[in-house]
Computed example of a mutant assay.
Amino acid sequence: MGRPSKTAAGLARHATKEELEQRQAAEKALLTGRHLEEQEAVAGNEAAHREFLRVQPILAAIGKDDALYENVINRYCLLRAECEEFEVLRETFLRNLDELQDDTRLDPSERFTLQAKMQKSILDADNRVQAKRKMMFDIEKECAMTVASALRSVPKTPAAKENPLIGLIGNG
């Protein structure tokens, strides 16, 4: 995977006026001009809604509050809510496992079998959370929501100053 294209702002030091105008027009053509809207599924989920309310103003501040990003951002918010649900489920399993270890009413072999099943459930919840976090991270990288992805848009070095004598010699 190569380096992503630079925005018009990122090209300002390196491009000619015509190239810059063409890039700005192309970027503008990709935006819908409509604001990002919260989907019903997100609005109906308390944790997802809270995440949407956190992320939307941040995206607006960097000019990414566009309907073009709507599905991705709503999916991101739902993934965040699902992560929270799995984290709560995992904590419940851990509490139940602790209680099971202290329960002397059960036959030791029966208790061991239940403990093994609970530990398997805890690992399963961990694996699901990790998969969802990976999906979230992929979205964060794609939408410039990480430091590294945001920095990829910033020009690495200023444009090299051309020696004025070379321009005169070349035109002579």
Results as ranks from 00 to 15, higher is better:
residue 2 G to N: 09
residue 2 G to T: 09
residue 2 G to P: 11
residue 5 S to P: 05
residue 5 S to M: 06
residue 6 K to S: 12
residue 6 K to F: 09
residue 6 K to R: 14
residue 7 T to C: 13
residue 9 A to D: 15
residue 10 G to F: 04
residue 12 A to L: 10
residue 12 A to V: 08
residue 13 R to A: 15
residue 14 H to D: 12
residue 15 A to F: 12
residue 18 E to T: 14
residue 18 E to S: 14
residue 21 E to S: 11
residue 21 E to Y: 01
residue 22 Q to Y: 07
residue 24 Q to V: 08
residue 26 A to D: 13
residue 28 K to F: 10
residue 28 K to R: 15
residue 28 K to I: 06
residue 28 K to V: 08
residue 30 L to N: 13
residue 30 L to H: 07
residue 31 L to C: 11
residue 31 L to D: 05
residue 33 G to D: 10
residue 34 R to D: 13
residue 35 H to N: 07
residue 36 L to W: 03
residue 39 Q to W: 05
residue 39 Q to M: 07
residue 42 V to I: 01
residue 43 A to L: 03
residue 43 A to I: 00
residue 44 G to N: 09
residue 45 N to Q: 11
residue 47 A to W: 02
residue 47 A to I: 09
residue 48 A to P: 03
residue 49 H to W: 00
residue 49 H to L: 02
residue 50 R to H: 09
residue 56 Q to R: 15
residue 56 Q to V: 13
residue 61 A to V: 02
residue 62 I to S: 11
residue 63 G to A: 10
residue 66 D to C: 12
residue 69 Y to A: 10
residue 69 Y to S: 06
residue 74 N to C: 10
residue 76 Y to K: 07
residue 77 C to G: 03
residue 77 C to F: 03
residue 83 C to R: 04
residue 83 C to D: 03
residue 83 C to F: 01
residue 85 E to H: 08
residue 91 E to I: 02
residue 92 T to S: 11
residue 92 T to A: 08
residue 93 F to K: 03
residue 93 F to Q: 03
residue 94 L to P: 00
residue 95 R to K: 12
residue 95 R to Y: 04
residue 96 N to L: 12
residue 97 L to M: 10
residue 97 L to D: 07
residue 104 T to R: 09
residue 104 T to F: 03
residue 106 L to M: 11
residue 109 S to M: 07
residue 109 S to Q: 12
residue 110 E to N: 06
residue 114 L to S: 05
residue 114 L to G: 00
residue 114 L to W: 02
residue 117 K to G: 06
residue 118 M to W: 01
residue 120 K to H: 11
residue 122 I to M: 12
residue 124 D to K: 10
residue 125 A to W: 01
residue 130 Q to I: 09
residue 131 A to L: 06
residue 132 K to W: 04
residue 132 K to A: 10
residue 138 D to M: 12
residue 139 I to W: 00
residue 139 I to H: 02
residue 141 K to Q: 14
residue 141 K to V: 08
residue 144 A to S: 14
residue 144 A to C: 14
residue 146 T to M: 05
residue 147 V to A: 15
residue 149 S to K: 01
residue 149 S to Q: 02
residue 152 R to D: 12
residue 153 S to V: 01
residue 153 S to L: 13
residue 156 K to V: 07
residue 157 T to M: 08
residue 161 K to F: 09
residue 162 E to C: 06
residue 163 N to P: 02
residue 165 L to P: 00
residue 166 I to L: 14
residue 167 G to D: 04
